[in-house]
Amino acid sequence: MSYTKGESTAKKVGEGTYAVVFLGKQTSTERDIAIKEIKTGQFKDGLDMSALREVKYLQELKHVNVIELVDVFESANNLNLVLEFLPSDLEVLIKDRTLLFSPGDVKSWLLMTLRGVHHCHRNFILHRDLKPSNLLLSQSGELKIADFGLARSLGSPNEEFTSNVVTRWYRAPELLLGAKHYDGGVDIWAVGIIFAELMLRVPYLPGADDIDQIDVTFRALGTPTDSMWELVSTLPGYNNLTVYPQPTKQELRKRFIAATESALDLMNDGTLRNVS
């Protein structure tokens, strides 16, 4: 297949490597596409891990709510990912104060996000970096999950995972507390926090640093204790925590003035403690 390249925007993709994203068209179909050109020479250990992850998982995940990897090719020893072109994302919309969100908007974005996440999870893949800027929107309003650079497969039960994943504000308590074993709950937590942000139009739990994030999170949603979450206190990061009470329904209503009762219930489900 051949492509014509248009304007470019430089974008950092992590682990010290850089990708340049070009907008372009697929010559045969006139379809708009984005070409993510990953500079391979700059990673001293060969092909960049996050680029490999992105290719690995997107090749498997064909779904209407996951960004489509149209093609992969090599040019001048750079890896090029041809992705469907998606002009906007939820972060852009949240920040655009001229836009009013109807409950229907929020519901449909949330539903599309959850469908995409469900598809990842039923394929035993964790995204591990859900946030508004990774939820892209097509011209016709379809939401698609993007950026699988931190994704990984759910492996064997004795394998250790790193807890240093997910952008801080969307990080689940088990990650904040340094768990080495976790599951799809970390993605669902992030979806719950994104849901809150869609209602508030500002980040819900904006911790200033990793320590502050623990405080901000537990002050808003209560500090988990062994009685509600078995053995939570044995997690490596569980020490000298201020024990905040669980928020009452009334407090949540005050924080989310426009939310319906069922919206609050749903958000509460999303941010429930990992009880497994």
């Binding site: 092909l47 290719v55 690995k56 090749q59 090599e74 890896l79």
Partner: peptide, 14 residues
């Protein structure tokens, strides 16, 4: 040889 291999794998790693 990484690229050569990735290409032969048709860019599928799973």
């Amino acid at each position: 040889l990484e690229f050569e291999i990735l290409q032969s794998l048709k860019f599928t790693l799973m």
